[in-house]
Nucleic acid binder design. Structure first.
Length: 191
DNA sequence: GTATGGATCCTT
DNA sequence: AGGATCCATACG
């Protein structure tokens, strides 16, 4: 277990970091449950104060968005549509509320455990709510660091070439007006 | 206190 | 194409 250093998350450019997270691996390991994880293959960047799609747009600071104002390297987990936990990576220095939504993984570890959590449904780790269910991530993990169990991100030295990255508009944010079609969703094409 | 709607998923 | 399902937020 060699988590990414916290310095990785301090970059001011959340759009670049959303691409840098592609190919990295995310894991959970809860006591008595076991290791589960996979490679990040889809992300979306949410650029804090300037981004109408971001919960922290215009520096909106509420009990929910508070975690995004922390220094980068912690998890922002919130409940969407009343039933799905969604996982974000908070980035940037303190008081810069940037976050990256993790939208899909390529499963690699603990597949049996993830299938059990998913009750056999497919896809196993495709979609932001689905992957949280597979990894056992709930809002209880809001604010926890990505640098140690039960939740962490590793660089397993998977090479990622720029031509493997597809950019497109973010999903489910029609309300964000002129920011709704920014190409801040990134997918990693894998063989 | 009440109303509103959502960074989704699943089935039809 | 629509229902599930409930919290956070905004308003009065």
């Amino acid at each position: 277990m060699t988590p990414l250093p916290l310095s990785f998350y301090q970059d001011h450019d959340v759009v670049r970091l959303a691409q840098d997270l592609l190919g990295k691996s995310i894991f959970t390991d809860f006591p008595g449950e076991g290791l589960a994880g996979g490679m990040i293959i889809e992300t979306e960047a949410y650029r804090g104060p300037e981004d109408k799609a971001c919960h922290a747009y215009n520096m909106r600071r509420t009990p929910r968005t508070e975690v995004m104002f922390h220094q980068g390297g912690v998890a922002y987990v919130y409940l969407c549509y009343g039933m799905h936990s969604l996982l974000n990576v908070v980035t940037g220095p303190e008081d810069t509320p940037h976050a990256i939504l993790i939208r899909a993984l390529h499963p690699t570890h603990g597949i049996n455990l993830m299938e059990k959590r998913r009750k056999g449904k497919l896809p196993l780790t495709g979609g932001p709510g689905t992957l949280c269910q597979a990894l056992g991530i709930t809002t209880k993990l809001n604010g926890t660091t990505f640098s140690e169990p039960p939740l962490w991100i590793e660089d397993r030295n998977i090479p990622v070439h720029p031509e493997q990255i597809i950019a497109g508009p973010r999903i489910g944010i029609d309300y964000a007006q002129e920011h709704a079609h920014l190409p801040w969703r990134f997918q990693l094409m894998i063989g």
